[in-house]
């Protein structure tokens, strides 16, 4: 029997547009954000200045990565008001749309790890080595501990996430090696290894996700045919089970903060089981 290609049946039943809607929107969002940052330096159209770490939109909307801001505060720096307000705005935003929506809708590392996951599925690489996905929370704890111990925003020296983000906007240097390492790690060592197991930035953004308003709901879970396509494409497959297979008493809402609200399960489900909804 040939391996089932996730999404094929959905394309056949729903058409290309419905079966790739959220994926297309997500790619559009990721590329649009990069374009907004680059319009200034390359075209002289200054809509957004800065990078993912901190930016200023149209000279009035500051946005700050709350994790970087928190590290700076822990390092003992009395952060400027602009940066603090920016961090607050971002935190509130992700409380509404789901913390790890940052990972799937904004962060360019997602392009790399999604490519590795896609290639892994295509090459039908056998299940990778087991790996504990709580390591990211330990890493997050340790980097937050390192900031006061060293008095510096230490994590940003090696953070692959910001190395790629900054590199695309300001020049990447040897950062390509870091990006290549993530791609190969994800492809050959641990499937979804970086974003799904190690990344402390994602771990941080998962925290507001545990409370966030916008969630994916397995609304028509009684229609599920157990084709497993959603599990195959999901970057955090463990989050689906309680909602989809949790029994009639369990909530059909995917409650885990590690659901990235990428919406790929909505795309690939031939039965239209999933939909975006609010938490309650």
């Amino acid at each position: 029997m040939t391996a089932r290609i996730p999404g094929r049946e959905a394309i056949r039943k729903k058409g290309m547009v419905q079966a790739a809607k959220w994926l297309a929107l997500r790619r559009l969002s990721q590329l649009a954000i990069l374009q907004l940052f680059l319009l200034g330096p390359f075209a002289g159209v200054w809509i957004v200045r800065g990078s993912f770490s901190a930016s200023m939109t149209l000279d009035f909307l500051p946005l700050t990565d709350p994790l970087t801001a928190l590290q700076s505060l822990l390092a003992g720096h009395a952060l400027g008001a602009t940066a603090l307000i920016g961090a607050l705005i971002v935190a509130v935003f992700y409380l509404l749309v789901g913390g790890r929506a940052y990972c799937s809708w904004a962060c360019p590392v997602n392009l790399v790890t999604d490519a590795a996951a896609w290639l892994g599925r295509r090459l039908d690489l056998k299940k990778s080595i087991g790996f504990n996905n709580t390591i990211r929370y330990w890493l997050l704890g340790f980097i937050l501990l390192l900031a006061p111990l060293t008095g510096a925003v230490v994590w940003e020296w090696v953070n692959p996430v910001t190395i790629l983000q900054r590199g695309l906007l300001f020049g990447i240097g040897l950062g390509w090696a870091v990006v290549a390492a993530i791609f190969l790690f994800d492809l050959l060592v641990v499937r979804r290894g970086w974003c799904g197991h190690l990344c402390p930035v994602g771990a941080f953004y998962s925290l507001p996700g545990f409370l966030s308003l916008l969630r994916v709901r397995a609304a028509r879970r009684d229609q599920c045919t157990d084709c497993m396509d959603c599990y195959s494409v999901c970057p955090e497959p463990q989050v689906i089970r309680p909602a989809l297979n949790g029994g009639d008493k369990g909530s059909p809402v995917i409650l885990s903060g590690n659901c990235t609200n990428c919406g790929r399960c909505i795309d690939v489900c031939p039965q239209d089981v999933f939909q975006f909804s609010q938490r309650f």
Binding site: S51, S53, A54, S72, A83
Partner: peptide, 9 residues
């Protein structure tokens, strides 16, 4: 090194 957010503004 504790204050800079590495944002490039």
């Amino acid at each position: 090194l504790g204050a800079c957010l590495r944002c490039g503004q």
